[in-house]
Structures are given as C-alpha cells and as structure tokens.
C-alpha cells in the first residue's frame, strides 16, 4: 500500500492552473524525486501535500486517510514534514531552539505544566534536549547549538531545516531543493546524509532538486512535471531516455548536444 497518493490533483489560482490533474504515489520507505523546469509546479505540489494550499480538485491521501485541505499543522501531525525552497528558519532563535520548536507537537504536557515546571516537565525537556542534540549531531550542527540560526553558513542553514523537519518525527519527508547553493562536495555529503537518515528513521522521501546528478544518483523513482502536468514517471534510466523530458528541458527541437541550461542531464 502506498504511503502518500495524489489522485488527479488540480489547483487553480485565478485563471491559472498551477497544477493540473497530477497523480502519483510514494510507498513506505521509498526515495522519490520530483523534477521539472522552473515554474513547473513542483513547490506547489509540496504546498498542496502539506496543506499550505487546498487543491481545487482531486484527492490526497496519506496512510490511507484523506488530508487534502486540512490545516498544515494537522498534516504535520499525521507524519509529513518539509523543508522550504527559500529557507524559512525561525530567525530570532538559536539553532537548538529552532529544532526544539518542532518537538512542540509531541509534548505531553499543557500550559499549566509549562507554567508550574514540575518534575514531569523537567524530564520531558531533558528528553527533548537529548533528541535534538542527537539529530544535530548527525547533521554536524551540535557545536552550533547556541548560535543564532541566521549566522550559520548557507549550507548549514539548509541542513538545519532538515533537522528541524526530522524533529517532528515524520514518516514522509519533503525536501524542496535541499542542495541549492551548495558546492559539489557539500552536495555529495548531503545526499549521503539523506540516504542515512532515510534508512535510520525508515522514512519515505520526496525530493525536489535541480541538479540532475544528485537526483539521478540517489532516487529510486522520478516523476517529471512540466506546466503543472506530470509528463513522465519512472526509474532514473527511463527518465534519462524519455524524449518528452528532454523536450521539456531543452525545448521541442532539441539538438542532441545541448548548449544552454540543462547540460547536467548527461
């Protein structure tokens, strides 16, 4: 059974169909890539899955239950976590607090306990601290725990966003261009890390990425969007050979030797 399934999902902003009748599914523990040219609707798909937008038509089901149109925090509570294309950390907080915020959902105490600060709260805060530090350790951020998150280098901020998403204990992790702005070495490191946490926490991952080397190297399956529609789906090898995909990236009358843009296809 698939963990997440989109069934003919359409969203319309004014007269514009940003996503049109898209269907695909992700199985438990699978690593799927979502690619497409700029403006193809990849981030919109993320926003639909996480509840930032409600679809105009179609169904989205997670673990067998409909989630379309639910509030984002409820969807996160079901087990979907995400990162953002344009990093959205909590700018006034430290690295540690950024991650701690994401543990909020799993708190077993309420406002009265938070005010009284009894032994129960102290134990829970200690447990959270240990969990957060473990995650920060995996992503090599433990030393920066008290630094303001905005003072981190760009790549570290991207990693911190992943840590924050992991802290919600998801079953499905949505990564929106996690390697954007990183150099090739950092990218390789990051992909290893993604593989590592995917196995360690038994996660399914949906990955939006522009760097074809990265996507082709890591994903088990890839879906391709263009102008809001899914034009292809398959293994990396199939996608690489698909003429529709090449046309979408390079234009209809593509020369066999691409000169502009998507040279990373090869």
């Amino acid at each position: 059974m698939s963990l997440l399934s989109l069934d003919n999902v359409t969203v319309q902003f004014g007269g514009l169909k940003a996503v049109s009748e898209v269907s695909f599914s992700i199985a438990e523990g699978e690593l799927v890539g979502l690619i497409g040219p700029n403006g193809a609707g990849k981030t919109t798909v993320f926003n639909l899955i996480t509840g930032v937008y409600a679809p105009t038509e179609g169904k989205i089901a997670f673990a067998g239950k409909a989630v379309a149109g639910k509030r984002p925090y409820l969807i996160t509570a079901r087990g979907i976590a995400r990162t953002f294309q344009n990093i959205r950390l909590f700018p006034s907080m430290t690295v540690f607090d950024n991650v701690r915020c994401a543990c909020n959902m799993h708190l077993k105490h309420g406002i009265s306990h938070a005010l009284w600060r009894g032994a129960k709260v102290a134990a829970e805060e200690a447990r959270i601290e240990a969990e957060v530090m473990e995650l920060l350790g995996i992503f090599d951020l433990a030393d920066d725990r008290d630094a303001n998150c905005k003072s981190l280098p760009y790549g570290a901020q991207r990693r911190l966003e992943i840590v924050r998403a992991l802290a919600t204990k998801p079953r499905l992790l949505l990564l929106d261009e996690p390697a954007a702005g990183m150099n090739p070495t950092e990218k390789v490191e990051l992909m290893k890390l993604i593989r590592f946490v995917q196995e360690k926490f038994a996660l399914a991952v949906l990955l939006v990425e522009h760097d074809m080397k990265v996507v082709m190297g890591i994903c088990e399956r890839i879906a391709v969007l263009d102008y809001g529609q899914k034009i292809a789906e398959g293994t990396p090898a199939e996608i690489r050979a698909n003429p529709k995909v090449i046309a979408a990236y390079l234009g209809k009358e593509a020369s066999p030797e691409p000169t502009v843009g998507g040279s990373s296809l090869h």
């Binding site: 984002p72 925090y73 976590a81 950390l89 915020c101 909020n104 998403a165």
Partner: peptide
C-alpha cells in the same frame, strides 16, 4: 517556543506542527 515560532514565521511554524 510556539509563541516565538508564530512571530518568526507563521507558515514554517504550521509546517512544524505548531
């Protein structure tokens, strides 16, 4: 910390289950 998360970035806060 939920209060501060709401102030800092509402959309990110919602997406983190707040």
């Amino acid at each position: 910390r939920g209060f501060l998360a709401v102030r800092d970035d509402e959309i990110a806060a919602e997406s983190m289950g707040i």
